[in-house]
Design a protein around this nucleic acid. Structure first.
Length: 796
RNA sequence: GCCCGAGUGGCGGAAUUGGUAUACGCGCACGACUUAAAAUCGUGUCUCGUAAGGGAUGUGGGUUCGACCCCCACCUCGGGCACCA
């Protein structure tokens, strides 16, 4: 008997699949297209993580099932390779980032291949390849053309340690998301992308896509749509000024309780009112203080309200004509709403805290109708969003150069499309400069150029794009990855992206950034009529994290990481895949347990043993055939009767696997296959037809072992190109079923009944049952409840 | 503080969505095979009780013939947002 030698088998089939190109997707090929996508990995120096395998295996199972169902499957892979870790490594070791990337992607590719994923490697992409980032730059230029990319002098979040401007999204709890260093405000001219212009659609169109509800909720919270009123408070006319303070409120109904008005310290009106403000010196120093306050302090847990009154300035509450004081305070944000509020201490906790601290009046007034009062005071109903425009500049080396040339005469001039890509030049040092410029700024040969418009002297933009750029459209490139004339041909897009990516799985950590950014870019391209759908992804699901043993985060510094390579070597790729799918509910985080992997291996060992038994019995039958010339009918029938329950269980299992894969309940799918194999092993005589159907449903989970057995039995084409088995509806019906019998809701016995038996018959049967009589004699039977096929409950 | 989600054996977790709680797997114990070990196979494994039976799904209440599932209050843990008016 041959042993289950995973090393030999897995290597063999990986080679065969690669040669026969069975996973390569043909644009316009046979069958309905199905596009399954996973987030392309960042090729870090740490190598493939067990978490990658969880997500990849899930989509591998889904796409393999689709292929067997007759779809034309696209399951691509590539590298999201721009980014800080590579650059930091390059700085430290003095190696070119491009070389680091090459080394890392080579490792990743090899590791991914060793797990047997059915990726179409012919479509592999790399965001750092000029042939790819040419199009990232091109899309940026289209945005620039439409006024969506603009340069803006703004206070940016500046990480002192990384020496880099951060997007709001990269500042977590006031510190740098990457290094944990302190973040200060710094004024800088930055390229911005006007994602806020799409805020309404990014919110509304979530109605039309099939995302997990929690993903939709998180996106909606991030976009932060809020409807309210914009109302103007006039500056008291005694001062002879026509200025007005516009406030935004969602609680116009509380306007009679507004006892003061607060402006953000950065509000432009403050300096305009300078002459009226009697305590200007104090006000000015408060503004300075706020500006220099690092984010970490401003958002600290135990933050205390601060502010100062603009003495000499009064505003008029338009609802009742009363004069109220005007303050500035940093609890009012310049970047949201109108940058100013009407404070209603009676109804708002923050206003109350502020009013209490500064002895401002807190009054209780009846509420009015918000809409009517807004109309009456000449305000208007408006919609505001928390979403801000996207800071798109990075003062870093390892990113796509922003394709803009700055000419003293002509201003910011886009690089002509024919000159794309703007190549990233080689530099000696990758370290950002102290004055906040990218390392590119010191290469004068590269920086100094001519203006495409006036041919005069001009300088290149030295900022690069954030690493979110390349991943904002990569799924489109997969449709046509080698195209030199377009980012992808219309034909390929129309074929693969007709309904958008059919199924996209990824991590929850990308819900608010990558997912939102790529939806934005896609909508922009849709508006240019360059992609067929307004939404990039039809369906989005999410996997839970794999934690280290004991439930803590897996990290290099804690030394508790698991190298998939070790598992593949010791137990095999199929075991690793089965284990990661069996480990727990797919959408929840789970703790790794090396001890438990053996169970998955034992399962595959059992599959192998049953296959061996089957082959032996087939061989024996062949012998009988030659000896006796034919197998007697009674032999055959005996086999049938033994297999009768196996057949039924098989068809039930096929149904279950089919449903479980669709709902990503991989753990219960495997559990039911384990039950089936346990029964098959006991049955000793399983027929080949049934066993092959079982192999087919196991194939997406364990592609190597199933291929080996399949081809030993059959010897023809790959199991992965075979047709997904259909379960027989008639074979999954139980003639006799066991139901529980309860007395007052407690289970006392169980009985076997015919499946079609009527309610009265069941009741009769139950009331005569001797195990039940004990419980009901000398008692009055009040009710008998029968739930068909489930349970009987006798109430006494 | 706000918004999601989750609490079930020694452990990872099942439970047809209101109908026989603890499937499947790990671990553990005993047994078979073996000179022995490993592997494999078999049996057992929530808890109290000799048994009949009782008690258990974070805690306390409620609805129901019947609740892990629905409702109310609370506790704990994970994730996201956070002075967003």
């Amino acid at each position: 008997m041959q042993n289950y030698d995973h090393k030999k088998i897995e290597k063999k089939w990986q080679g065969v699949w690669e040669k026969s190109k069975i996973y390569e997707a043909k644009t316009g090929g046979k069958g309905k297209p199905f596009y399954g996508l996973i987030e392309f990995p960042y090729p870090s120096g740490a190598g493939l993580h067990v978490g990658h395998i969880r997500s990849n295996t899930a989509m591998d199972i889904i796409t393999r099932k689709r292929r067997m169902e007759g779809y034309n499957v696209l399951y691509p892979i590539g590298w999201d390779a721009f980014g800080l870790p590579t650059e930091n490594y390059a700085i430290k070791m003095g190696i070119e980032p491009a070389k680091v990337t090459k080394t890392n992607t080579d490792i990743f590719r090899k590791q991914l291949k060793s797990v047997g994923f059915g990726f179409d490697w012919s479509r592999e992409i790399d965001t750092t390849n000029p042939a790819y980032y040419k199009w990232t730059q091109w899309i940026f230029l289209q945005m620039h053309k439409k006024g969506l990319a603009y340069k803006h002098k703004t206070e940016i979040n500046w990480c002192e340690k990384c020496k880099i401007g951060l997007a709001n999204e990269e500042v977590v709890a006031g510190v740098c998301e990457r290094c944990g260093g302190s973040v200060i405000k710094k004024e800088k001219e930055q390229w911005m992308l006007a994602i806020t212009k799409y805020a309404d659609r990014l919110d509304k169109d979530l109605d039309d896509v099939n995302y997990l509800e929690k993903i939709k909720i998180q996106q909606r919270n991030w976009i932060g749509k809020s409807e309210g009123s914009e109302i103007e408070f006039k500056i008291s006319s005694r001062q002879g000024l026509a200025e007005k303070i516009k406030v935004f409120t969602t609680r116009a109904d509380t306007i009679f309780g507004a006892t003061y008005v607060v402006l953000a310290p950065e509000h432009e009106l403050v300096s305009k009112l300078k002459l009226q403000i009697s305590n200007w010196n104090e006000v000015e120093s408060y503004i300075k203080e706020v500006k220099n306050k690092p984010d970490i302090e401003r958002t600290a847990e135990d933050k205390v309200k601060t502010g100062i009154e603009l003495k000499g300035v009064k505003a008029i509450n338009p609802a009742n004509g009363e004069e109220v004081p005007v303050w500035i305070a940093d609890y009012v944000l310049a970047t949201y709403g109108a940058g100013a509020i009407m404070a209603v201490p009676q109804h708002d906790d923050r206003d109350r805290e502020f009013a209490t601290k500064f002895n401002l009046p807190i009054i209780d007034k009846p509420l009015v109708n918000a809409k009517e009062i807004t109309d009456k005071v000449g305000g208007k109903i408006v919609t505001k969003y928390k979403l801000r425009d996207w800071v798109f500049s990075r003062q870093r080396y390892w990113g796509e150069p922003i394709p803009i040339i700055h000419c003293e005469k002509c201003g910011y001039v886009p690089v002509p499309e024919k000159d794309l890509p703007v190549l990233l030049p080689k530099v000696k040092s990758y370290t950002p400069t102290d004055n906040g410029e990218s390392p590119l700024a010191i290469i004068s040969k590269w920086v100094n150029t001519t203006c495409p418009k006036c041919k005069g002297k001009a300088k290149r933009e030295t900022d690069t794009m954030p690493n979110w750029a390349g991943s904002s459209w990569y799924f489109l490139r997969y449709a046509d990855p080698k195209n030199k004339k377009e980012f992808a041909s219309k034909k390929a897009l129309k074929y693969w992206m007709k309904e958008g990516v059919n199924w996209y799985n990824g991590g929850m950590e990308h819900t608010t950034l990558h997912l939102l950014y790529s939806r934005f870019w896609h909508k922009f391209l849709y508006d240019l009529k360059l992609v067929p759908t307004s939404e990039p992804y039809m369906k989005r699901t999410s996997h839970g994290m794999i934690l280290a043993e004991g439930g803590v985060k897996m990290s290099k510094s804690l030394g508790n990481t698991v190298d998939p390579k070790d598992i593949v070597t010791l137990y095999g790729a199929d075991t690793l895949r089965i284990y990661e799918m069996f480990i727990g509910p797919f959408d929840q985080s789970v703790a790794w347990s090396t001890e438990s992997i053996i169970g998955s291996r034992r399962f595959l060992d059992k599959v192998w043993r049953v296959a061996q038994q089957l082959q032996m019995s087939t061989d024996k039958k062949l012998q009988i055939n030659t000896d006796k010339k034919s197998v007697s009918i009674s032999d055959y029938n005996q086999g049938q009767s033994v297999n009768f329950s196996i057949e039924k269980l098989l068809h039930k299992t096929i149904k279950k696997i089919e449903e479980d894969i669709e709902s990503m309940s991989f753990n219960t799918a495997i559990s039911s296959m384990m039950i089936l194999v346990n029964e098959m092993e006991k049955a000793t005589n399983v027929n080949e037809k049934d066993f092959k159907m079982f192999l087919q449903i196991l194939a997406p989970f364990a592609p190597h072992i199933t291929e080996e057995i399949w081809q030993n039995l059959d010897g023809k084409k790959s199991i992965h190109l075979s047709s997904w088995p259909k379960y027989d509806k008639n074979k999954i019906i139980d003639e006799k079923i066991m139901i529980g019998v309860q007395v007052n809701g407690k289970v006392r016995t169980e009985i076997s009944i015919d499946k079609d038996i009527g309610e009265d018959e069941v009741k009769n049967l139950v009331l005569k049952n001797k195990d039940i009589l004990v419980w009901i004699e000398e008692k009055e039977v009040k009710r008998v409840i029968y739930v068909k096929g489930r349970i009987v409950n006798i109430v006494v």
